[in-house]
């Protein structure tokens, strides 16, 4: 058996001294698409941020291997260059830096000095991906995420995903705040990436995203760990019953979680 793309074992993550992720396990192989679903506040974004190496999140226990390498030992930029990508729930805004300059810098960071991507080739690729995502040309010259609407930011995350072609993408609530048409566009972008060499971890609160990007596996996260795993049918069940049904079945009581899926 080949080495899994991502292997998370007994991961514990704390923020400001408070443990949020408590013993998380997950393995993603090759081109698999996994979905992690769970109520708000259960630690999904904390997991994603910890994988990417966000400075505020502290790993207190556990291991993460990325293609067999110790991911937690790497700097944020090294993780990205190794092939990890995180579409963030709340992307930063960088004033004065155009989307195009930023993307070109990111692409060239993966290439040797002297082997930078030719400008024309970059522009052609960018134009094509922006067209797929229904993004107007002006987005190339706008400052990175500055003044972007919620939906525009999400598209811009997917644009980066498509331009950088990672081996594994974590999409954190990429569907939130999108209307159905925008959701379809974003799903089209992700589906274009599907290949045996592209794994994906879709983090979502709602099942609807999974109608457009079919997952191989679905995991339910509660109280900082996976409490149930299954196939796409698990997502459908959550859609029908909400998280409460599952909580009852598993005997989970959680005062902070009381939202319907």
């Amino acid at each position: 058996m080949s080495t899994p793309t991502l292997k998370i074992e007994n991961l514990h993550v704390a923020i400001e001294g408070k443990e949020i992720v408590k013993g998380f396990n997950l393995e993603i192989n090759g081109g698999e698409i996994h979905a992690v679903m769970g109520p708000n506040g259960t630690g999904k974004s904390t997991l994603a941020s910890a994988l990417m190496g966000h400075p505020k999140y502290e790993i207190t226990e556990g291991t993460v291997l990325f293609e067999g390498q110790d991911l937690l030992e790497m700097e944020v930029d090294e993780r990205a260059r190794a092939g990890l990508f995180l579409a963030m729930q709340y992307p930063s805004e960088i004033s004065g830096v155009t989307n195009a300059d930023f993307l070109r810098t990111a692409i060239n960071a993966r290439r040797e000095e002297g082997d930078e991507i030719p400008l024309m080739k970059f522009i052609k690729t960018l134009d094509k991906k922006m067209e797929t995502l229904d993004m107007g040309e002006e987005f190339a010259q706008r400052y990175l995420n500055e003044g972007f609407s919620g939906g525009e930011k999400k598209r811009n995350e997917i644009l980066q995903l498509m331009m950088l072609e990672p081996k594994l993408a974590v999409l954190d609530e990429i569907d939130s705040g999108l209307d159905i048409d925008a959701l379809k566009v974003v799903a089209k972008g992700v589906n274009e990436m599907r290949s045996p060499h592209f794994g994906c971890l879709i983090i979502t609160h709602y099942q609807r995203m999974l109608n457009y990007i079919k997952p191989d596996k679905v995991h339910v996260m509660m109280q900082g760990r996976i409490v149930k795993s299954g196939g796409p049918e698990l997502a459908e069940r959550l859609e029908a019953e909400g998280y409460d049904g599952l909580k009852k079945e598993l005997g989970i009581e959680d005062e902070t979680v009381n939202q319907e899926a």
Binding site: D77, R79, A80, I94, G96, V97, A106
Partner: peptide, 20 residues
């Protein structure tokens, strides 16, 4: 962190922020 999460080194990320 955001810039670095795209593979840009810390130094290069600072450079972008300064230019910006």
């Amino acid at each position: 962190y955001y810039l670095m999460s795209r593979g840009i080194s810390e130094h290069e990320a600072e450079r972008l922020v300064i230019h910006g």
